[in-house]
Design a protein around this nucleic acid. Sequence first.
DNA 1: CTTGACCCTATAGTGGCTTCAGGGTGCATA
DNA 2: TATGCACCCTGAAGCCACTATAGGGTCAAG
Lengths: 129, 129
Amino acid sequence: MKIGDLSRLTGTRVETIRFYEKEGLIPAPSRTGGNYRVYDQAHLNRLSFIRRSRDLGFTLDQVRALLDLSDDHSRSCGAVDELAREQLRSVERKIEDLQALQRELASLLNQCSQGTIAECRIIEALAPG
Amino acid sequence: MKIGDLSRLTGTRVETIRFYEKEGLIPAPSRTGGNYRVYDQAHLNRLSFIRRSRDLGFTLDQVRALLDLSDDHSRSCGAVDELAREQLRSVERKIEDLQALQRELASLLNQCSQGTIAECRIIEALAPG
DNA sequence: CTTGACCCTATAGTGGCTTCAGGGTGCATA
DNA sequence: TATGCACCCTGAAGCCACTATAGGGTCAAG
């Protein structure tokens, strides 16, 4: 499998795959005579794992931790659980922050009566006073 | 007013104020004999405006646009309205994305029965198959 | 033998700051 | 007068997770 195939199979940009390799998240694959990277099923599995973790909002450091944990099958699942729980809390905090923003923006837009800047409620709300 | 005072009054880090100046968001203030920046009320107003805009999630480019618009009092408020509306849409999209994440994470955590990694539902959900 | 899709490396850029290294200023206190 | 300390200065690098760009090499088909 060449890097373009892996890219299509995982929906990851080619540059991102090379970036993950440089970051040590994916082991360096073997090369063809023409210096092309050659991947196998293990690489595909690992990259899929990384992508799903990223899609769930984990940072690359958290992904690293999850990869390490997933390798040690006899270990307790507690650390994984804690990472996921922390991530859930972080997502919930972000949602709350954004909802507060949403309310503020909606309220500003509600007051705008499309006149001139001089009487614009939005600018007024931003300006100090 | 020295940069530290402005920092305290607006809740902006000193380094960030200098960064805004370098970015052209705040005009370069005059200096004391000892080369300290000296700010006045106009600077305070402008920085407050920037911070409130940033708190509402506008990018620095959007803040630049808002600052330009706010200077032209006779102009129509339509452009401001459009910026705010765009920002609201963007916030709403982010909320939806995060809520989808929240559901996924919560569902994963719900399935975790705190055993070993080998039987961990979270790792399982991340691994391909 | 050329075209075009694909691959390679190395480096810089993105946004919005933050941190660091290495200094200078200014006021109060011993 | 010396010294300590809080504050200020500049310029450059670092952060995250990529993305983009420049400048080239490989390989199969027509």
